[in-house]
Design a binder for these strands. Sequence first.
DNA 1: GTGAAAGCGCTAACAC
DNA 2: GTGTTAGCGCTTTCAC
Lengths: 328, 328
Amino acid sequence: MTSAHRPATLDDVARLADVSRSTASRVVAGTGFASPAARDRVLAAVDRLGYVPNATARALVRGGGVRLVVAVSGVTAAVLDDPYVDRVVGAAARACASYPVGVVLHWLPLHGSATLERIARDRGVAGVVLVNATEPLLDTIPAGLRGRIASIGIGTPTVPSFDVDNAGGADQVVRHLYASGRRRIAMVTGPRWLSCAGRVVGAYQRIMRESGLPVRLVSGDFTAERGRAAAGELLARWPDTDAVFAVNDLTALGVIAGLRETGVRVPGDIAVAGFDDIPHAALNTPALTTASHPVGPIAAAAATAVLHNRPVPPVTSFPSALVRRTSA
Amino acid sequence: MTSAHRPATLDDVARLADVSRSTASRVVAGTGFASPAARDRVLAAVDRLGYVPNATARALVRGGGVRLVVAVSGVTAAVLDDPYVDRVVGAAARACASYPVGVVLHWLPLHGSATLERIARDRGVAGVVLVNATEPLLDTIPAGLRGRIASIGIGTPTVPSFDVDNAGGADQVVRHLYASGRRRIAMVTGPRWLSCAGRVVGAYQRIMRESGLPVRLVSGDFTAERGRAAAGELLARWPDTDAVFAVNDLTALGVIAGLRETGVRVPGDIAVAGFDDIPHAALNTPALTTASHPVGPIAAAAATAVLHNRPVPPVTSFPSALVRRTSA
DNA sequence: GTGAAAGCGCTAACAC
DNA sequence: GTGTTAGCGCTTTCAC
């Protein structure tokens, strides 16, 4: 620890330890050979100088890149405002702390691969984590990104996917509804173009058919506002509905609000369940029954896979657990 | 746009444009002189090659650093789990998109400046944004960080502060409570060591004293759980309370839940207001009256200030607006 | 206006 | 084992 003014370089360390820069480098980077004596002297010098390797220089020579791009696709840049995106970025930023890499957030126009092309050519980019990717977008992934890209959501053979087990979670929710005696279970879906939502809806439909129960779908858009409206539509079309499964918690919260405004009791008259277990699910009155969605671990895994850039299975599925609370 | 395999370098551009690397550099970086003819040729080459400057190499020569560290201080690393932190990181990551800089997230032990020392010596670090900094921590900021550090919350003469106008927001809330006829207004505070909360409490106390009203304080810890418990304590100590002002929304939401469990009507019997306007505030039943807290803009401003590293006023205050809903 | 040359701090062959 | 020698891709004096 010397005068804080000019941070020590590897040269300073080498000089103080009386070895060559190469030797110092080997010791510090933990690669290659060095005699115990040399190693000790170098380590001592590092300590005395408070030497911290310059990640920039390292990245330059190794060509690894220093930024992890979290790219969220959507119609407008407003998709970045979703708290979900913040959770992904937060987890990614934490995962990056062990690497000399930082996270940046980009919006990806729904089909615009020009942005992606540019990112692929940016040598400062260590890797890309896609969020909300669509099939058309996945079809246009630049070849240069191969091996350093991952997708949170759907993937392709060349873009590994990291996602919650949507079908499994939905399955548990619907079975729970069924087990508690509900038989006329409606579902509020998401916008059509997002296939992760498709999995949940698919699972719902399958179970309903298997059990010989009616399929009742109302489309939503992931917002609470729309959920509230959907509650009304639902009541109007199928007044005997006794349970509602919403594709995500926000929608479910909206449904509950909409239902209660009409004087319907939850869960007394109609049970309501969501999917995601967002922080506020537990806070709501009534507390929301839902299926967990480990966003943090998923994002961390995706980021780590990209950073490690060693072979990854094409699909990594994270289990979703039923969270029983009072709304269903 | 050539074969995507080896991204073009400045050398390629220079060669294609038939100028020296220096000239190409000047044109691309927009610095220094170049004849219109040369400039055109270079730009054309850039376009044809799809050249993207290598931020790493730039950072190395300019010595600017490539990572922005968001450092959150707290008792344990669990402070990073707060959704608030994710919002800060998300906003910072967005702000970084215009710079060759990425964000990493670090936990800072409450008084441990060793971590900060290390960060200060890391030449890969472009700057630091402190979150939840305490006075003891601010006193130990390494000199090497001067000019490239900012604090979200309290600051010092050398560490610029970016924060919501806590006093102003609290002022509005209390006045609103008063204006709607409430006179026995209690407050649920935060943990003692965080001075941002202190501002809010201070404002409450001042107004109450000025108005000749009783000061009623119950201490909380920013969690809904504690808010729920605080509601009980409060009722027991001052049964005639007709309004509760909680230091943050989470606490307020807990207070509401606690109150309703006891059969108290909100806002009928007791009005409840919070501070922050978190996403769930609008969703709650009853919807929470609160004061806004522009976390995104604050974080973006702090990040930008650090990245720009040009002189910044010691305190930048962001207005807080009263958000009238139904709970008060 | 433009080019040659000297690094930024580090790693990785390749000799010794 | 260890040092020497080249670079990684870019910016920036400093001559011409």
